[in-house]
Design a protein around this nucleic acid. Sequence first.
DNA 1: GGGCGGTCGGACAGACCTGTCCGTGCGCTG
DNA 2: CAGCGCACGGACAGGTCTGTCCGACCGCCC
Lengths: 218, 218
Amino acid sequence: MSLSESAPRSPVRERILSTATALFDAYGVRAVGVDRIIAESGVAKATLYAHFRSKDELVLTCLQQADHNRRDYLRQMARAAGEDPRDQLLGVFDALRTITVREGFRGCAFVNTAGEMMPGTAPHTATAEHKRAVRTWLTELAAAAGAADPELLALQFSVLVDGTLAAASLHPGPAVAEAAREAARTLIEQSCPARRAKGPRAKGPRTDGPGADGPGAG
Amino acid sequence: MSLSESAPRSPVRERILSTATALFDAYGVRAVGVDRIIAESGVAKATLYAHFRSKDELVLTCLQQADHNRRDYLRQMARAAGEDPRDQLLGVFDALRTITVREGFRGCAFVNTAGEMMPGTAPHTATAEHKRAVRTWLTELAAAAGAADPELLALQFSVLVDGTLAAASLHPGPAVAEAAREAARTLIEQSCPARRAKGPRAKGPRTDGPGADGPGAG
DNA sequence: GGGCGGTCGGACAGACCTGTCCGTGCGCTG
DNA sequence: CAGCGCACGGACAGGTCTGTCCGACCGCCC
């Protein structure tokens, strides 16, 4: 939704993008220089600047790609969690569990990047739009689940999602995502008046369902 | 708890610390150079390096000071929320509301800093310890509130706290903190078996209770 | 008055950063 | 074969960063 615009395909370009994304995720945008990106992607500096006007534009493009990958992955995991929209909402936390448990997970790439930039800059805005897009999707899911106040429930889920990514980066392991999932389940039960108290809902898929998330980190 | 060690008092030192904290909060640790810190604090570079061995040590000291201030503030706001431990737990979100609503709020200073550093570095470790200390405190509160599983509830609250700080930095306004507070209320009601369903609990103090939070940001 | 600790202002070294520019080579197409 | 597009390696400019060092000043205590 947020974009995709003109996306020229090129193997070199993709290599630069995936290398840059990996390095940015692992060390932070500011800590990674273009020299390192070209060294690790085996590309000449002139080539990088032929494909991207500046490092900032490269950062932004990485974020846009990650936005697409992340939202795709969330949708896949939600769908894999079942037919019931309530189960699909919980599927989000199955995705989070997989993401946060990965070796080298260092928190939400969007939030980390936004934390290094001032509000109003392109990457900061892209982060805000990514989060807003996820929240909009959560709102639809919450409405389908029969939530009394879908906007509120979606906002609460957004908080749980961002909190899971932040907390898990400092407290490694699946405990954070699992606790957040339980919290989400409670919120759903309290917020969706329809046939509640059916006993503990089926746990749903806990291990990796659909394919990988792409190079995205949190 | 986590520290305080040898803390030499000096007006110049305090001035450097408060200026550095403000700049780090506003722009990120990596975006702020020592030249800017000395310029805005009106201090000679040699003086800064007489008080702090390196910029890293300055960053770490700022974080330690912020840890102290933030935890103090949370305790104050919890106490101000009432006698009932359940209300005190909700008081945390009154604090978050005040924090996130401040002009120029840019997210949790700890998480932002950790996001710029590799795991294992001093600032990253300090962030993890700060969050762990807060969680330990929340566990005590949850136990006092009669939670069936105080550790779980505290972890869920940690997620809500971190999520509120992250989400509110991208979605300004009080809505995030207020939604998180409602979620917290639901979790408490479901987790603390004692006299539940007393109707909607008193809203508690919504506006700023105790004094300022010091220079801390999120 | 004299010494001294703390601070100031600024120059400086060495490293690193982004972005530009050059000449070279390789593969494809006409 | 000739021409062209694309990528290569690497030098370079101009700026910024951290951290060191030096001389001077100022207030305080002996």
